[in-house]
Design a protein around this nucleic acid. Structure first.
Lengths: 253, 253
DNA sequence: CGTTGCTTTGAACTAGCTCAAGACCTGTGG
DNA sequence: CCACAGGTCTTGAGCTAGTTCAAAGCAACG
């Protein structure tokens, strides 16, 4: 079960430097484990959260329901992510955090989290940075939602999720676990279910992705990337520490 | 010129508590003043930022240009806002920060900012919180962009901006300074210029807002709010410290 | 008073929506 | 082992919100 800390450490090291002391502080954090059934809320819109979680297994997503029944999914969170880190300083939730598939998380009470952070400016900076990268991904999505058509958005989504999965060590060469129904996909892309279905067929016919049985396979990365106008810069992985190398580049150099 | 600190203090107090020591630390921050012409970038996409700014006067906006010429505006920042606070931990910009009208800002070098923050966990928490509220506003916009039609989005925008202006003491009863062209409005709402024009006329005909000469007047707040599906909770002002009271409620109790 | 930037209008077009039905799949109980 | 139920996917067809293109009106400013 201690691989909760490993997952977290790995995640933080993907976005910044971590000293031995920082790692030790992380390792000392108390964890409560929790399993979630598919569709179960970890915390719902309007509730007050008292802990932050690390995803250990499965997929969580954040979403908000509108009064008229519409739902927008904001982000997807595979293992290693901390999807409610923001609740540390914004405890009243303005959206839902839900399990997309059966999932396991480790929870860290806010009190302990705060205690660790006042002692470690290094960790504070890293966690803060993590929430800022989150916001950067939101901006990238706003650009998609506001300015691009359905096929571009869908291609972009697959690019983004594949990149995140690859960075987290969760991608198997060209494919990754992606437990969404087409309804979920539609709610994420801001299009209707029918149109999501047709757009997906379009991508399939172009031979760039396959998506079946909760698994996405990238068949033609550079073309998918082109369609999706995908530039991973906004993910801010290793910003400026390493030249930009993207997973899947091997396919089409 | 010291009202730069006043503006900042006021802003932070709108979103949390500030102790005398915190206020003193703020007051000791070194400031560089800068004026911007309309349309001038304070910092552009891809550049590395070395300071954070406080808007003193005018309006800044954040936006990203897509390769195909499309532009999405993410947020608008009146006086008191710190629109590039995120650059402290994410120095490479993934979008532009530009003056919407002639503006004045005070800049604080990252180095000084960091020095102040390691000494004050209180300020760290407040600034962090400020960036999180930013992200919450992005989520609210994603919901709009993905799930609602043009008139709802436009009404929502007016509600949001009026609320922000009122909280910052920048609104004059029912109206506030809003220096956008219809093209800007369109780029913010993710619709075409022509449609922005027609949607605006629709709102005018319904008698809920007027928008002329860089000024928005709210003519019928509760109706505007209804059309825009506006619930200010996501702005997290004074979360839970004060019951929810909204500017303009007096109009239609 | 002419240029330049902003707003308004008309008209044809299209991406994406809604409604509705059928196909398919997987697990459950008889 | 079959039937049937609930969720998911697929398809067709008509409709609408929003787009593009193009032109004209308006206002401010040097």
């Amino acid at each position: 079960m201690q691989n909760a800390i490993e997952a977290l450490t790995r995640r933080l090291e993907a976005i910044g430097q971590l000293s031995p002391e920082g790692r030790a502080t992380l390792a000392a954090l108390p964890l409560q484990f929790r399993s979630l059934r598919k569709g179960e809320d970890l915390v719902g819109d309007g509730e007050v959260s008292t802990s932050c979680c690390v995803v250990l297994d499965g997929y969580l997503y954040r979403s908000k329901d509108a009064p008229n029944g519409a739902r927008q999914i904001f982000s997807l969170h595979p293992a290693g992510d901390m999807p409610d880190l923001h609740s540390l300083h914004l405890p009243r939730m303005d959206h839902n955090l839900t399990a997309m598939s059966e999932s396991r998380v480790a929870q860290i009470p806010h009190a302990e989290m705060n205690a660790a952070l006042v002692r470690s400016p290094e960790l504070t900076a890293l966690f803060w940075r993590s929430t800022l990268i989150d916001a950067a991904a939101f901006r990238a999505w706003m650009l998609m939602l506001g300015q691009f058509d359905a096929i571009t958005r869908m291609a972009h989504l697959f690019c983004e999720q594949f990149t995140k999965a690859a960075m987290a060590g969760l991608a198997d060469q060209d494919s990754f676990f992606f437990p969404l129904t087409q309804t979920d996909l539609a709610d994420m892309l801001g299009i209707s279910l029918v149109h999501a279905n047709r757009t997906l067929q379009d991508l399939r016919e172009r031979g760039v992705v396959a998506f079946d049985h909760n698994r996405v396979s990238i068949l033609h990365w550079s073309e998918l990337r082109r369609i999706g106008e995908f530039d991973p810069a906004y993910l801010h992985y290793l910003d400026g520490r390493i030249g930009r190398r993207n997973p899947g580049d091997a396919h089409n150099p």
